[in-house]
Design a protein around this nucleic acid. Structure first.
Length: 507
RNA sequence: GGGUCGGUAGCUCAGUGGUUUAGAGCGCCUGGCUCUUAACCAGGCGGUCGAGGGUUCGAAUCCCUCCCGACCCGCCA
C-alpha cells in the first residue's frame, strides 16, 4: 500500500497553516457557503453611491487576489466570475483571528455591510469571515507570472482573462450553434466514437483495442458515415457537434482531437448547404465577436506558404479585417488560382504535363499518383489557400478529391462540393452527398487501390456503410464545420490551443 | 519524421570566453504596524543549476546520450 505524503506534493508552509486551522477547530473545506449575491452584483449596486447608508447584510465569496494585513485591520480583495471587491476585516470581525493562516488564492466567504474605505474604495466590512477552500500551492500575482501553456497549470491560467476569454467565447458559440440548428428543425444526435472502420475523410486514425471481442477498433475521424446511416433510417435533418480524432501532428491550426460540426439534410444539395453555411457562420461570428467584421492578426507567410517568425520564434502577424457579411464570393479552384497566384496562373491554358510541372514547382506532391484534378488541388493549396482572407466558397472540385460526393450535374469530371476558406485556412466542407451505392462501391475500391499504392490516408472499404446505402439514402446535402477554427477567428486567436480548454500535450 | 530555442529557489528570470561562497524580484518564515492597493519597515530561510556519462586540477558553464517543454517544417481540418 502506497502512503500519500502531502509534503511530497504541496507547499509545506500552507500545509502548516492548514494544520493550525484544523487545530483551532476551523474546517478549511466546509461543504457549502451560499453567497447572497455575486460580487459583480454587489459592486453594481453600490459603485455609484458616494455615501453608503445601507446596513443590508451581504454574503460574498471568491478567490483571494490580494491581502494587505496591517495588523489590527486587513484588506482582502476577492474575485468571483462576475468581478472583484475588497473586504475589510478588523478585530471585530469573527474569523479575523485566523488572518495569519490566509494566503493568496485561497477561496473565502464573508458576511457584512457595504462601506467605503477611507480612500473611498467600495468594500464589504465583514462581520464574519470564513475559509471555504484552503489552497496548498503557491501562486504569484499575474504581474509576476508569464502566461505559459503548460497543461498541468492550465486550470490556474483560466484565472487570467487572456486565457479564459477565448475558451469561454468558444463554448458560448457552441451553445448558439445548437440553438440555431434546433430552430432550423435539426435534431442533435450522437454517433459512435469507437468504430470498426474509420471513414468519412482521409486521415490517420487512432487505434485502440476492444477487450470484449478481442478486436482492433478506431477512434472516429469523422461522423459522416453514421449520420448518413441515419438519413437511410428516415431521419431527415440531423447534426452532431463533437470531437473527432486524427492521429496527425500538432500545429497552430491542428489539434489531434478537435470539435467538428457535421449536419445532413435530406432532399437538399450543396447550394442549400452554402446558404445555410452563410447564415450559420455569420450568426455565430456575430454572436461571439459582437460584429460581422472581425479583426484578425493573421500570421504572415513567405512565398512557400511557411509561417514567418522572428529570432525568438514569435509568429509574425499583420492585422486583417475579415468581413463575414453575406453573401460570400463563390469561385472554382481554377478561378482562385488565377486570382491569388502572383503570376495569375491560368490553368485552363496548361496541358496535363504543364500543370504537373507547375504544381510540383510550387511544392505539390502526388504520393498516390498524378492526375489533372489532383494537380489543380495541389496548386490551389500552395498558391491560393493562404491568400484568402474574407470568407470565400471554393466550389466544384475535381472528382478525385473525395469518394463521398455526387458528380456535378453539369461539369464533367467535377463534383458538387464546396470548401469555405477565411484567413487562409479551411473552415467548412460540404457536398451534395453521393447516394448511388454502385458508384460508392467503385469509389471505395479506387480508394483501396490508392491505399495499396502508398496513400496511407485513403479510405478503407466500409461494407456496412455500403449495405446501408443500398437500402436507399435520400438525396441530401451535408456540411462539416471546424468549430475550433471558427472560434479562433471570432476570438482573434493565433493558435488553436487558445480556444481549447485542455489542448493535447505535444512531444 | 526533420529542425530551432529552452529546462538555474515555490513562481518569473539573470548568470555560462571554466575557478573558492550561484544571484534578483515576488513568494515563504520571524517581529512590528487600525485605511491598504504588487501595503510598508527590519531580520531570516530557501538551489546536488532537467537526468546520466565524459573532458578537466576545477563544470550551471565545454562534449555525448537521454527526458521534458515551446515553436517551425512535412502531412492533415
Amino acid at each position: 500500500m502506497t502512503e500519500f505524503d502531502p509534503a511530497d506534493h504541496f507547499a509545506p508552509d500552507r500545509l502548516e497553516k492548514l494544520g493550525r486551522l484544523r487545530e483551532a477547530g476551523v474546517d478549511p473545506y466546509p461543504p457549502a457557503f451560499r453567497p447572497s449575491r455575486s460580487v459583480g452584483g454587489f459592486v453594481d449596486e453600490y459603485e455609484d453611491i458616494e455615501e453608503i447608508e445601507d446596513d443590508t447584510t451581504h454574503r460574498l465569496a471568491g478567490r483571494v487576489h490580494r491581502i494587505n494585513d496591517l495588523g489590527g485591520i486587513a484588506f482582502v480583495e476577492i474575485e468571483d466570475e462576475s468581478g472583484a471587491v475588497q473586504l475589510i476585516l478588523d478585530e471585530d470581525t469573527d474569523g479575523y483571528e485566523h488572518i495569519d493562516e490566509l494566503d493568496f488564492i485561497d477561496i473565502v466567504g464573508a458576511e457584512g455591510e457595504a462601506v467605503r474605505s477611507n480612500t473611498g474604495e467600495l468594500s464589504l466590512h465583514a462581520d464574519s469571515f470564513t475559509f471555504l477552500t484552503k489552497t496548498l500551492k503557491h501562486h504569484n500575482p499575474p504581474s509576476q507570472s508569464e502566461l505559459g501553456d503548460r497543461y498541468e497549470t492550465r486550470a490556474v491560467k483560466f484565472w487570467w482573462g487572456e486565457v479564459r476569454d477565448p475558451v469561454e467565447t468558444r463554448y458560448r458559440m457552441t451553445r448558439q450553434l445548437r440553438r440555431f440548428l434546433d430552430d432550423c428543425g435539426f435534431l442533435e444526435v450522437e454517433t459512435p466514437v469507437l468504430q470498426n472502420v474509420a471513414g468519412g475523410t482521409d486521415a490517420t486514425p487512432f487505434e485502440t483495442h476492444l477487450e470484449a471481442k478481442d478486436q482492433e477498433m478506431y477512434l472516429r475521424i469523422a461522423t459522416e458515415l453514421h449520420l448518413k446511416r441515419l438519413l437511410v433510417g428516415g431521419f431527415e435533418k440531423v447534426y452532431e457537434v463533437g470531437p473527432v480524432f486524427r492521429n496527425e501532428d500538432i500545429d497552430v491550426t491542428h489539434n489531434p482531437e478537435f470539435t467538428m460540426l457535421e449536419l445532413y439534410q435530406a432532399y437538399a444539395d450543396y447550394t442549400d448547404m452554402m446558404d445555410l453555411t452563410e447564415d450559420l457562420v455569420a450568426h455565430l461570428v456575430e454572436a461571439a465577436a459582437g460584429d460581422l467584421v472581425v479583426t484578425y492578426d493573421n500570421p504572415l507567410r513567405d512565398a512557400d506558404g511557411n509561417v514567418r517568425t522572428d529570432e525568438e520564434n514569435d509568429v509574425l502577424t499583420e492585422p486583417v479585417e475579415i468581413d463575414f457579411s453575406p453573401p460570400w464570393p463563390r469561385m472554382t479552384p481554377e478561378e482562385a488560382i488565377e486570382r491569388y497566384s502572383d503570376e495569375s496562373i491560368d490553368v485552363t491554358e496548361c496541358d496535363d504535363e504543364e500543370l504537373r510541372e507547375l504544381a510540383l514547382a510550387h511544392g505539390g506532391e502526388f504520393p498516390g499518383g498524378y492526375s489533372r484534378g489532383l494537380g489543380i488541388v495541389e496548386l490551389f493549396e500552395n498558391v491560393a489557400e493562404y491568400e484568402i482572407v474574407d470568407p470565400t466558397f471554393v466550389v466544384d472540385h475535381p472528382k478525385e478529391t473525395t469518394p463521398l460526393c455526387k458528380d456535378h450535374r453539369e461539369k464533367e469530371g467535377r463534383i458538387e462540393r464546396f470548401e469555405l476558406f477565411a484567413a487562409g485556412f479551411e473552415l467548412a466542407n460540404a457536398y451534395t452527398e453521393l447516394n448511388d451505392p454502385v458508384e460508392q462501391g467503385e469509389l471505395f475500391a479506387e480508394q483501396v487501390a490508392r491505399r495499396e499504392a502508398g496513400d496511407e490516408e485513403a479510405h478503407q472499404m466500409d461494407e456496412d456503410f455500403l449495405d446501408a446505402l443500398a437500402h436507399g439514402m435520400p438525396p441530401a446535402g451535408g456540411l462539416g464545420v471546424g468549430i475550433d477554427r471558427l472560434a479562433m477567428l471570432a476570438t482573434n486567436s493565433q493558435t488553436i490551443k487558445d480556444v481549447i480548454a485542455f489542448p493535447i500535450r505535444g512531444e
